[in-house]
Amino acid sequence: MVPAYVPNSAAAALGGGTPVDLGKNWRDGRRILGDGKTYRGFILGVAAGIAVGVLQIVLREHFGWSLLPEHTLVTVTLLATGALLGDMAESFIKRRLGKESGEEWPLADQYDLVVGAFVLLILFQYAWVVRYVDLLVFFWILILTPLLHRAANIIGYLIGVKEVPW
């Protein structure tokens, strides 16, 4: 999951510029996504996730780190892209529910990246999911995701990248 965990933090730290929704509102009068979802953040976030995934591949294949999952460039790309698409989908739904950008939405804020990553993996690499994601792995993803999410957000808040610690 590391290639899916990195993109959100990287997007927050490296993003900015033109919003993905181009500042437009949905038919309900609210922003489609908000200013926090930018093209630069999406591109650099996905790139950071892919870079971490490639590092995992190199460490496993060339340095014998067999505890790392057997990734391919396709699986790390799907994990990284899916994480940010899941985050954007959650932002879209959040706006429709009248929640503001940055407003805390427990569970959805923490698991959006997992849902997005798994949707893409299941659609395009189903055999990989079946082979490498058993119940124990899925359990650990469910346990570690909110802990890592909270830690990353607190760090982002403390260094001034995020406006709120969630």
Rank of each mutant, 00 (worst) to 15 (best):
V46C: 14
V46M: 02
A47T: 10
A47H: 01
A48P: 00
G49L: 06
G49D: 05
G49F: 04
G49E: 04
G49N: 05
G49R: 05
I50N: 11
I50K: 07
I50V: 15
A51V: 08
V52Y: 10
V52P: 02
V52C: 15
V52E: 05
V52Q: 05
G53I: 06
G53L: 08
G53F: 06
V54Y: 12
V54C: 07
V54I: 15
V54A: 14
L55D: 03
L55F: 11
Q56V: 03
Q56F: 11
Q56Y: 04
Q56A: 09
Q56S: 11
Q56C: 11
I57V: 01
I57P: 00
I57M: 08
I57D: 00
V58I: 14
V58L: 13
V58F: 11
V58T: 04
L59K: 07
L59Q: 05
L59N: 04
L59G: 09
L59F: 09
L59E: 02
R60T: 06
R60Q: 00
R60G: 01
E61Q: 12
H62E: 10
H62T: 09
H62L: 10
F63N: 01
F63L: 05
F63V: 05
F63H: 08
F63A: 05
F63M: 12
G64F: 03
G64V: 06
S66H: 14
S66Q: 15
S66E: 14
S66R: 15
L67A: 12
L68M: 02
L68D: 08
L68I: 07
L68Q: 07
P69W: 11
P69K: 10
E70V: 12
E70K: 14
E70Y: 11
E70C: 08
H71D: 00
H71Q: 02
T72A: 10
T72K: 04
T72S: 15
L73E: 13
L73V: 10
T75R: 08
T75Q: 07
T75K: 05
V76T: 03
V76K: 04
V76N: 07
V76R: 07
V76S: 02
V76D: 06
T77W: 02
T77I: 04
T77G: 13
T77H: 07
T77S: 15
L78G: 11
L78Q: 12
L78S: 09
L79E: 15
L79M: 15
L79G: 10
L79H: 06
L79T: 04
L79C: 13
